[in-house]
Simulated scan of single mutants.
Amino acid sequence: MRIAIEDLAVSLSGRTVVHGIDVIAEDGEIVGLVGPNGSGKSTVLRTVYRHLAPDAGRVLVGGTDIRTLTPAQSAQRVAALPQERGSDFELSVREVVAMGRTPYKRAFAGEDGTDTELVAAALERVGMAGAGRRRFSALSGGERQRVLLARALAQDPRVLVLDEPTNHLDVRHQVELLALLREQRRTTLIALHDLNAAASVCDRLHVLHDGALVASGAPREVLTADLLAEVFGVRVAVVEHPLTGDPLIAFDHRSPAGGLPGAVAAAR
């Protein structure tokens, strides 16, 4: 399902956080948002899963303004893994994942065979199949992350919205999560701090800086040394990954440097 964010503007506490944002994710694409802390990545994503209402612009899901849908209709189309994640669920792992089926249920309706299959499949896909009876509150941060991803998958949405989904995951589970996203080819909007992960998993990237979109395109086109120096204030070399051929960003940890004047302006 196609997602189109059109001329989006959002203010929080009277301050404009993002403005003039245009992002498109075609059916089956993985589209990434990257940028420094405070650049507006999470704010943009929150408008897609209706946690925030924009001041201007709109979010179209399959051609329909998401604000015109009921909460259940919206949740059947879009599932989110936000950064603000509950950690105090006094529920079992399986019960948490089964919450993803709520948009399809009438009040007081019980679980049916489809629900059971989707919950089991989601737990299997995130490597938590044997953990269904464990208490969610007793899990590690990485385990909770995987369970909440399973809940989003059990929701069986057309669109996934993921805000820093690799946080708290060890290297193996980061790699497995990115492989899962590539495998399923569900339309996905994802915010990532890890630029190498973004280069590996995303079909297209949008770079945000101070609430504005400063570059868009394929990872190889967007992740240039000049733009990264300007936006992130670091010196890098962009080379080819020896195993995958993706862009690989090598950071100079000894001599971090500011950007090159004019790089962002040229990319607008």
Results as ranks from 00 to 15, higher is better:
residue 61 V to Q: 04
residue 263 A to K: 02
residue 232 F to R: 06
residue 260 L to Y: 07
residue 254 R to Y: 11
residue 262 G to N: 09
residue 57 G to Q: 09
residue 254 R to K: 11
residue 257 A to T: 14
residue 228 L to H: 00
residue 21 I to Q: 03
residue 62 G to S: 12
residue 113 G to R: 15
residue 233 G to P: 00
residue 174 Q to H: 15
residue 2 R to G: 04
residue 175 V to G: 03
residue 35 G to V: 10
residue 126 V to N: 05
residue 261 P to R: 12
residue 70 T to C: 07
residue 125 R to L: 11
residue 51 H to Q: 14
residue 97 V to E: 03
residue 5 I to D: 04
residue 252 D to A: 08
residue 85 R to Q: 12
residue 186 R to K: 13
residue 183 E to H: 13
residue 244 T to M: 09
residue 15 R to V: 07
residue 247 P to Y: 07
residue 119 V to E: 11
residue 14 G to K: 12
residue 203 D to E: 12
residue 53 A to S: 15
residue 6 E to G: 01
residue 87 S to F: 13
residue 155 Q to G: 03
residue 204 R to K: 14
residue 110 G to R: 15
residue 263 A to G: 02
residue 61 V to E: 07
residue 156 D to L: 10
residue 213 L to R: 10
residue 112 D to V: 10
residue 175 V to T: 12
residue 79 A to R: 10
residue 215 A to I: 10
residue 136 F to D: 00
residue 99 M to N: 03
residue 233 G to M: 05
residue 29 E to Q: 14
residue 217 G to R: 13
residue 239 V to R: 12
residue 93 V to S: 00
residue 136 F to E: 04
residue 212 A to W: 09
residue 175 V to R: 15
residue 254 R to A: 15
residue 9 A to F: 11
residue 13 S to I: 01
residue 185 R to Q: 12
residue 185 R to S: 07
residue 66 I to F: 06
residue 178 L to E: 02
residue 46 R to D: 08
residue 132 G to N: 07
residue 161 V to T: 09
residue 103 P to Y: 00
residue 235 R to W: 04
residue 212 A to N: 09
residue 251 F to S: 00
residue 147 V to L: 11
residue 10 V to L: 11
residue 86 G to L: 06
residue 97 V to I: 11
residue 227 L to I: 09
residue 240 E to F: 12
residue 194 D to W: 02
residue 167 N to Y: 07
residue 159 V to R: 08
residue 128 M to D: 01
residue 37 N to P: 10
residue 130 G to P: 13
residue 67 R to S: 09
residue 101 R to S: 02
residue 253 H to S: 08
residue 241 H to T: 06
residue 23 V to I: 14
residue 152 A to R: 03
residue 146 R to L: 11
residue 97 V to W: 05
residue 222 V to P: 00
residue 45 L to E: 04
residue 136 F to W: 06
residue 114 T to V: 15
residue 35 G to N: 13
residue 20 G to E: 14
residue 39 S to D: 06
residue 242 P to E: 10
residue 4 A to H: 14
residue 13 S to L: 07
residue 202 C to E: 00
residue 56 A to Q: 14
residue 109 A to G: 02
residue 211 G to Q: 06
residue 180 L to Q: 05
residue 37 N to M: 07
residue 193 H to S: 14
residue 51 H to N: 05
residue 198 A to I: 04
residue 189 L to C: 07
residue 176 E to K: 09
residue 17 V to N: 01
residue 38 G to P: 12
residue 212 A to K: 08
residue 248 L to G: 00
residue 110 G to I: 12
residue 65 D to Q: 13
residue 171 V to E: 09
residue 193 H to N: 14
residue 54 P to Q: 09
residue 38 G to W: 03
residue 92 S to T: 15
residue 222 V to A: 05
residue 114 T to W: 15
residue 120 A to T: 14
residue 59 V to W: 00
residue 150 A to L: 05
residue 76 Q to V: 00
residue 43 T to C: 09
residue 115 D to V: 08
residue 92 S to C: 12
residue 95 E to Q: 15
residue 67 R to I: 01
residue 3 I to K: 04
residue 127 G to T: 07
residue 147 V to M: 10
residue 58 R to E: 08
residue 20 G to N: 13
